[in-house]
Computed example of a mutant assay.
Amino acid sequence: MSDMTPVRADDLPAVLDYLRGQTACAMFPLANLETHGLATQSGHSRAMSAWVRYEDGEVVAFLGMTRDGWMLPVLAAGDPLLDAVTAPLSMRSYEWILGEAGAVHSVLDALDLRHHPMGLLRDEPHFLLPLSDLVMPEVAGLLLVPADATRRDLLIDWRSQYNADVHGTSPSVAAERAVVDVDAMLETGSHVLLMQGDTPLAMTGINARAGNTVQVGGVFTPPARRGEGHARAAVALHLAALRDATGAEEAVLFAASDTAAAAYRAIGFSRIGTYTMCRLARPT
């Protein structure tokens, strides 16, 4: 027996159990729900509205949306839940669709978005690393420092380049978003800089945490310093510090390029699947 329903507070324990059963593919909705809850409970931008499909009393499919327009499906390709939520989703505003490749491409088909102008549609290799298997690269003379307000201008410049490179946004939009992104980083203390003396070499951060799993994101090396191993050093040092200080046990990430993928494999990450990032183009 199958039942499709909007998620209410009473559903949250079953929904969280479902998402925790596939944490690596569900980091963003899981972290959002654990931290900010449902949109009916919180006004936070990452609080979520969500729909689920039950089968024999258990959640078997999930689709959530944050207040700020991130759609996050965790379901099998072609799941019947998509047919049930087409109408309510068509009345909502969203910009991003993120998730396992089969889920995202099924959403695009169900919502008839294949011909919608895209700012970004990219399938990326999805990686997992048990932190007990972390391989440390050469890090002599390197250290991590918090990405704090004393370096706000640098962080905004780097994040603007990151948004243009990774998210495919125009320079003006990339710069606009960078200010918001950096202010969020500073508020949460999520990112760090790799330093050699007084010289910043690279940046990395944690975009989400659920239980003992962390989602690596925002990894950036300025163009003049690329090819020198700084990104892998930054990520490895940060993950080692989180493992030792907070008990983190595994890390997940997705790679925007073959170069990035090679760097992550070098410190122990293994591919577990494909993750799709879709950003619908803004109206002009």
Results as ranks from 00 to 15, higher is better:
230 H>A: 10
127 F>V: 08
175 A>L: 12
198 D>I: 00
193 L>F: 06
190 S>G: 07
79 D>Q: 06
64 G>A: 09
152 R>F: 12
72 L>P: 02
182 V>I: 08
179 V>L: 11
100 E>A: 15
279 R>Y: 00
212 N>Q: 14
60 V>T: 14
209 R>W: 13
44 H>Q: 13
33 L>Y: 11
95 E>Q: 15
265 R>Q: 12
192 V>T: 09
108 L>K: 01
30 L>H: 11
76 A>I: 09
78 G>K: 12
230 H>T: 03
176 E>P: 05
47 A>P: 10
3 D>G: 00
152 R>N: 07
21 G>L: 02
35 T>Q: 14
118 M>Q: 13
51 W>M: 10
273 G>A: 06
169 T>W: 08
182 V>G: 07
233 A>L: 02
207 N>T: 06
41 Q>E: 15
68 D>T: 12
275 Y>W: 15
204 T>R: 04
178 A>L: 08
32 N>W: 05
192 V>R: 02
14 A>T: 08
214 V>W: 08
188 T>F: 04
66 T>I: 08
125 P>F: 00
209 R>V: 15
61 A>F: 06
125 P>L: 04
147 A>T: 10
241 A>P: 03
218 G>W: 01
212 N>I: 13
82 L>P: 13
44 H>L: 07
88 P>D: 03
101 A>M: 12
2 S>P: 10
177 R>P: 09
57 G>C: 03
247 G>L: 08
26 A>R: 03
52 V>I: 15
216 V>C: 10
105 H>L: 09
268 G>Q: 03
71 M>C: 09
244 D>N: 14
148 D>Q: 00
267 I>V: 08
121 L>Q: 13
176 E>G: 15
124 E>T: 14
108 L>F: 02
253 L>P: 11
185 M>N: 04
126 H>C: 07
66 T>Y: 04
275 Y>L: 05
224 A>R: 05
76 A>N: 14
117 P>N: 11
167 H>D: 13
37 G>E: 03
49 S>T: 14
180 V>P: 00
59 V>L: 02
45 S>F: 12
141 G>P: 10
27 M>E: 09
83 D>Y: 08
273 G>E: 08
84 A>D: 05
120 L>G: 02
216 V>K: 09
75 L>P: 07
97 I>F: 03
25 C>K: 04
153 D>R: 12
32 N>F: 10
158 W>P: 01
110 A>P: 05
270 S>K: 12
121 L>N: 11
194 L>P: 11
86 T>Y: 01
224 A>H: 08
51 W>E: 11
162 Y>N: 12
33 L>W: 09
128 L>D: 12
145 V>H: 00
28 F>A: 10
125 P>C: 05
75 L>Y: 05
185 M>G: 01
18 Y>R: 03
25 C>P: 01
